[in-house]
């Protein structure tokens, strides 16, 4: 039987976390099996191809072609409308030597602490706490509340948090109320606190997602393992490190992939809260690319920066895919 599914696939292996966005390999793998059986391939695979065609066309038209066009643009000096000049690798040289652009890449990597490490750590703690709660209204309410920030559009979150971080905003009101007047400041206007403050908005949004996904993962861990470790007299910590954490490796890999991509390609939160300021303290590649491409109309340079960003994302994310599979 030929199966020509077009959705994201789940092959024989249990988990194949696929890097979202940049390199979806969905449809390609889906037809793998029929093609391997060469003798009976002819007639059946033709039908498969026909059925595959609409998805393939959409995929080529909206993912592959624009990406290749971006690659092509990156070798030109072009304003997006008028005539273009081929400039070879000049745009790439500029991206890799301009201190302002390099600093924005560094900021994006700093955001990984807030977009990835904090949400996953907090998510792990919360998920194991919720697991130890009795199933019932309280645990489902806790889950719902934790997940709520996920449904707030990031742009709106950025604006709302910018108000809360303001001189007279909620954060400072709270600090004054508990006698910490000394450390109040305009958090987004301070060069030292702007980037962490923006990062924490990301933590707030992503913790819910991490918790819920990790909770689902915990549910799949064989209950007898917990029983066994309990019988051996293990406490909460022992149980966490021996059973829960190893059992969640796949989920953690998926979350790390998603959140690292969110950190490196962040745009909306920063665009609505600081626009890269003060100075360039919160400038990230997303903002730079938007400005270079659409404000300065330097489509070539913006495309080159986009390509560099894509490569960086892949360099960080692909090893995670590999790590999650080792020793399985």
């Amino acid at each position: 039987m030929n199966k020509a599914t077009t959705g994201p696939l789940h092959s024989a292996e249990p988990q194949q976390p696929v890097a979202t966005g940049s390199t979806p390999t969905g449809p390609v793998v889906a037809v793998a099996q029929p093609l391997r059986r060469r003798p009976v391939r002819r007639a059946g695979s033709r039908t498969a191809w026909v059925m595959l065609l609409p998805a393939l066309a959409v995929y080529i038209g909206f993912v592959i072609a624009p990406m290749l066009m971006g690659l092509q643009y990156s070798f030109y000096d072009w304003n997006g409308v008028g005539a273009s000049t081929f400039v070879g690798l000049e745009n790439y040289t500029r991206v890799l030597t301009d201190p302002v652009l390099l600093a924005s890449i560094l900021n994006a990597f700093t955001l990984i602490i807030f977009f990835t490490i904090i949400p996953i750590t907090v998510g792990l703690i919360l998920a194991s706490l919720i697991r130890s709660m009795r199933q019932g209204p309280v645990s489902s309410i806790a889950q719902t509340i934790l997940f709520l920030p996920q449904i707030v559009p990031l742009a709106a979150a950025g604006i709302a948090w910018a108000w809360m971080y303001a001189d007279t905003g909620t954060v400072n009101q709270f600090l004054r109320a508990v006698g910490l007047e000394g450390i109040t400041r305009s958090w987004l206007a301070d060069y030292g606190t702007a980037l962490p403050a923006v990062g924490l908005i990301g933590s707030w949004v992503l913790t819910g997602l991490c918790t819920v996904l990790l909770l689902t993962g915990i549910g799949k861990i064989d209950g007898s393992l917990y029983e066994a470790v309990r019988l051996d007299g293990a406490g909460w910590w022992r149980e966490f490190f021996t059973v829960t954490l190893p059992g969640l490796r796949q989920e953690i890999a998926v979350l790390a992939t998603l959140t690292i991509i969110a950190a490196l390609s962040s745009f909306d939160i920063i665009y609505t809260s600081t626009q890269g300021g003060p100075g360039r303290a919160t400038l990230v590649p997303g903002i730079s690319i938007f400005r270079i491409g659409f404000t300065q109309s330097d489509v070539g340079l913006a495309s080159a920066f986009g390509m560099v960003l894509m490569v960086l994302v892949l360099l960080v994310v692909l090893p995670i895919q590999r790590l999650s599979k080792v020793n399985d």
Binding site: A65, L68, Q72, Y76, G82, A83, S84, V299
Partner: peptide
């Protein structure tokens, strides 16, 4: 697919 230099005409 891309064929030619962007916006060259």
């Amino acid at each position: 697919l891309a064929g030619c230099a962007p916006g060259s005409s």
